[in-house]
Each structure stands twice: as structure tokens, then as C-alpha cells.
Design a protein around this nucleic acid. Structure first.
Lengths: 237, 237
DNA sequence: TAGATTGTTAATCGATTAACAATC
DNA sequence: TAGATTGTTAATCGATTAACAATC
């Protein structure tokens, strides 16, 4: 466990010690975005309360989260926005550029390929791959769509460690297998299916219809909604 | 708190009692999908272990989650796939159809408008809205893109309670305000910004670049990755 | 010094999990 | 009855939060 004594940001390894809670890791990008927003507003120093409001979290949680990285604030003053922003970017690994491959160039894959928010945050899409021979050869932005057979070579050539799957559910597992075999160790899966990977490979899943279903669950329980009556009918039947 | 005595699924209200944990709610759609997959494989009965493997969770967790809904299994046997599937669908609110409006028809909005996964799960996109007068009037599938001024009327006409925001960050808050003013009480926000809404309105956020950043954080910490060296360099500097 | 705000503690809350009595 | 598997308990773990001593 970590010692109670104050940590010095200059002490090598102090801030990057293992054991940053997953919940904290998931919020670091949110803080990064909030700091960017403050920078754009010309704000150089911000209190944990300012930052928390911008990020949409509670300030005690924010201070606790930041404390896992080190002591980057000044008591009585707050945080230097530019400095904290750099420290968080470094912690996440955004001081380097991450080459990314997208497999499955349907509507969603195409939208991601064109999404400016990736490149502006340290990710560079270096290859687009599709199994459909009709789409192969087509150019999207500056990239030509490549066949699945080229996947291994593309990953090796660009030293890709992060892959994005935007194929239909049926192809997702075999694509994941190929990505892993080629050396990819992080996968962002948009296909509506569970994929299995060896330990050591991280998978995150984004599921658009699941998000809507969670909203529907709560919506159904709100008073005044027509659905609430329907549900009661089913129940007493 | 819930009583320790066994609950009867036939008892009105038993399964739908408030207090289903959020973490459980978020997994119900995953179980629903797993049950659908089992149905497609022609499997009529499944144990919690079968279901858990298909859904990618641990079976103790799955049984605990299902216990919040009621007692839908049979000891020594397992769960009837079709029956459990119906019960979960009912619990989520998918026995009715949910009309949805999408605001912001860029690459992502267009991809969502064409996404078959929504309609097959009880959501129907009833309106596409964009602020750009160049896109207004264009037809996507069976829907014509409508101007922002029509938003209120569309929501009233179709009794929409769920809205999807796929605008740039800068427009998201004003769109959210208009959605709420028009009566929407659930929002799925794809814009890379925090939006504020009155209490009683649910917002879920999907942030594509945040998912990639979380992967990058872990990737950076994996041995053998070039980035690991870079980070160490920065740190000791 | 007085005021402000961090970083940390400790209490609380919620989620996960193994284990097993209940029961089909 | 014997075997299988649920539904529930209770222990554990992790996350959140209020409060405040430390300190700028």
C-alpha cells in the first residue's frame, strides 16, 4: 500500500506507481478534456471545485483521483491548468502517438475513420481494412481500404497495438483472433457480441443499442410515460 | 429491503420492485443478447453457467442479477431461455417500441440512422434533425432530414422521450436544452462534452476517444511496448 | 497572519464473489 | 433417492464522499 507521507512529483515513478483504480483511470480522459476546455477559456489556474464542475464530477472524487497521480496542486491556490494537463496526458500515454487500425468499413467504421476527435487526441488511424472486395481499393480521406489478407502486414509495418472492430457480430471473433495473432494487445469492439481474447489483451466494448436499452429501463419507470401503464398491464396478466 | 422469503413471479410487482442496482441494470441488455444467441442456436434451456459464459460474466453474478427480477429459474434444471428472455425484455421495457430522434446528421448520426441494431431491439428512429440547411431536405432511408425548428413539433407528434445527440461539442448543450424543453427525458450523448440537464432527465454518454484513451493507458503499461520506454524517459527527466 | 484549498483519512455505500442450503 | 443447479447469504473488495489537518 502507498505510504502516508507526501509524494514528490519529481521522484521517479511516484506518480506512475501501479494501483491506480480502474474507476479513476476511466475519468482521467474526462479531466483532460475539462482542462483543455479551461485552457480554451484562457483560465490558467483552477481549483478542484472549478475543475470538478467542468468535468461534471464531485470535487472530493476529483482530488482523490488526482492524488493517485501525485501532488500536482498547490494548497490555498489550486492547480496550474497547463501543468496538470500535461501530467494527465503523460499518465494516460498521450505524449506519444498511437497508430490504430480499423477493421470493418461499414457506416460506423467510415464514421470513425473520419472522426477528427481521434487524431486530435494522439491517435492516428493508419489502416482501414474490410473483408468486402467491393470496398477494397476505395479511398477514404488519405487511406485506401485494404483487404483482410493485408492485416498482419499492416499491423507489423505500422507497429499497431490498438485495433478497432466495426464489423458485423458474426465476423468479430475471427477478426479479433487475427488482430491478436498479428500482435494487437488492445481492442475497441463495436460489434454487438462478446469476443474472447487471451489474457494480456484488453478489450473494451461500446454497444450503442445497450446504451439505449439502459435509458429505456429508466424511462419506463418514470411517471407519466405511456409505457409505465403497458408494463403494469403485462405484469398483472 | 427485500424479504428473505422466496418471491413468486406471479405476484404482481414482485419482480419490478425498485432497487435494481445500476450495475445489474447495465447487464440486463447483455443477458438479453446472450439469450437471443442461445435461441438462435436452438437451445431451449440453459444453466446459469451456460448463460454466464455466453454473456461473458461470472455465473454467481448472473444469478444474483437475475434474483433482483424474480425467481425465473428451476433448481436442478436451469432457465427456460424463451421465458427468461421475455421477462428480461419486459423488465427493460422492450415489449413496447421506443420512438427516438437523432439530432446532428454528420458521419456518426448517419451511421446511427442506418444502424439495424436499433430497430431490431425495440427502438424506432422517427426523426432526423440537423442545423445545417444544406443537409435539411435530404433523405436517409425513409426519413427526410428536418431543420432544428421542427424539433419541438416532431417530438410532440411522435411522443418521443429518447433523444440522441450527435452534433459537434459546441452545439450539444443547446440541443439538449431544446430536447428537454420539448419533453425528452432521456438523452444519449455522443458529443464530446458534458451536458447539463434538469433532474429527472437521464443522460448517458458514449465517448469514442475516451475509450481509446483508456486502452492507451493500459497499453502504455504493458511490457515490451515502445511507449513504456518513452514514458520512463519523460519521468526521469 | 487569515483565508483558501489541497491531499488524505475514515466512514459509508455499492458491487462482486464463493459457498451452500434449498429444492427441483 | 441422488444429482444438479438455483437463489441467497455473508464475506470481501472497491468506489464514493464528507470532513479536516496540512499548508500554501
Amino acid at each position: 500500500m502507498s505510504q502516508a507521507r507526501p509524494r514528490d512529483p519529481a521522484e521517479p515513478g511516484s506518480g506512475s506507481a501501479r494501483g491506480i483504480p480502474e474507476a479513476t483511470v476511466a475519468r482521467l480522459p474526462v479531466y483532460l478534456r475539462a482542462l483543455t476546455a479551461l485552457t480554451e477559456r484562457g483560465i490558467a489556474t483552477a481549483s478542484s471545485e472549478d475543475l470538478a464542475v467542468t468535468a461534471g464530477v464531485n470535487s472530493a472524487k476529483l482530488r482523490k483521483d488526482l492524488s493517485y497521480l501525485g501532488s500536482y496542486g498547490t494548497r490555498g491556490v489550486g492547480y496550474d491548468v497547463a501543468y496538470l494537463r500535461y501530467q494527465i496526458a503523460r499518465e494516460i500515454g498521450l505524449t506519444q502517438e498511437w497508430p490504430v487500425v480499423i477493421v470493418g468499413i461499414g457506416n460506423l467504421g467510415e464514421a470513425l475513420a473520419n472522426y477528427a476527435g481521434f487524431s486530435s487526441r494522439g491517435f492516428r488511424i493508419v489502416a482501414l481494412v474490410d473483408a468486402d472486395s467491393d470496398r477494397v481499393g476505395e479511398t477514404l480521406g488519405t487511406l485506401r481500404i485494404r483487404p483482410l489478407e493485408d492485416l498482419q502486414d499492416l499491423i507489423t509495418e505500422h507497429q499497431v497495438s490498438i485495433g478497432v472492430i466495426t464489423t458485423p457480430a458474426g465476423s468479430a471473433q475471427s477478426v479479433a483472433d487475427r488482430l491478436v495473432a498479428a500482435g494487437v494487445t488492445s481492442i475497441l469492439n463495436f460489434a454487438p457480441t462478446v469476443i474472447s481474447v487471451p489474457s494480456g489483451v484488453d478489450v473494451r466494448k461500446v454497444d450503442l443499442s445497450i446504451e439505449l436499452q439502459i435509458l429505456a429501463f429508466h424511462e419506463q419507470r418514470k411517471a407519466g410515460h405511456a409505457g409505465a401503464l403497458d408494463a403494469a398491464d403485462v405484469e398483472s396478466a
